[in-house]
């Protein structure tokens, strides 16, 4: 037996949990090894006193008032503004898409060019959002539950706005205003995700 493997057995030997065979092997080594004799004796003589150490000690003064004062719910600056922006976005999207669709020039609408217009606007945003969502997933447990709730609620709102603008643009692919509206939705989503990721890394 080497000193290293002997040392690994010392604690269970002292605790009396070592199998008889291993215990014999350890004793055999210790009988001829001065170093391990010292280590075994040290472990044996300390085990009792260490067990007797108090597990709890009261601090000299009451620390709770000082702790309590520092328990401020962390406000997350910017969430309010972003949430309001998202709500405004969906309200605007509904009204604006209705208005915009009203003045659409029916001759420009075709299914193929509608999908192409959407793709052109969304290029890049979708990948960016996916990457940010993955980053957020990693940092998610550092965020307070109510923060997660706010982020998710707002992502929902934005997703609805995006879906609405996208459907409108598909019907009216030449409409420049609908493109802007769809792009704004995606920008909002990326901004919200970026802020959430940044926050999860700061914590």
């Amino acid at each position: 037996m080497t000193c290293e493997s002997a040392r690994n057995l010392i604690d269970s030997y002292v605790a009396g949990t070592l199998a008889a065979r291993d215990a014999l092997a350890l004793e055999e080594h210790v009988a001829v090894c001065a170093e391990c004799t010292i280590d075994l004796a040290a472990a044996g003589s300390l085990a009792g006193p260490v067990r007797a150490l108090p597990r709890r000690m009261d601090p000299p003064g009451d620390l709770w008032p000082a702790v309590r004062q520092r328990l401020v719910r962390k406000r997350t600056p910017g969430w309010g503004a972003l949430a309001a922006a998202a709500v405004l976005l969906i309200a605007l999207t509904s009204v604006v898409t209705a208005l915009l669709l009203d003045r659409r020039d029916a001759t420009t609408a075709s299914l193929a060019s509608g999908a192409a217009a959407v793709r052109m606007v969304e290029a890049g945003y979708v990948e960016q959002a996916l990457e940010l969502e993955a980053a957020l997933e990693q940092g998610r447990e550092r965020l307070a539950p109510e923060t997660i709730t706010i982020v998710e609620r707002n992502l929902d709102v934005i997703a609805k706005a995006i879906a609405e603008s996208r459907a409108a643009l598909e019907q009216d692919p030449a409409n420049q205003d609908l493109r802007i509206l769809l792009r704004t939705g995606h920008e909002q989503r990326v901004a919200l995700l970026e802020q959430a990721v940044r926050l999860s890394r700061e914590l």
């Binding site: 597990r55 709890r56 000690m57 009261d58 601090p59 709770w64 702790v67 309590r68 328990l71």
Partner: peptide, 14 residues
């Protein structure tokens, strides 16, 4: 949280 604090402060301080 204060209840949790008082239940654990002795061990954490030690």
């Amino acid at each position: 949280f204060g209840t949790l604090y008082h239940a654990h402060v002795g061990r954490i301080f030690a």
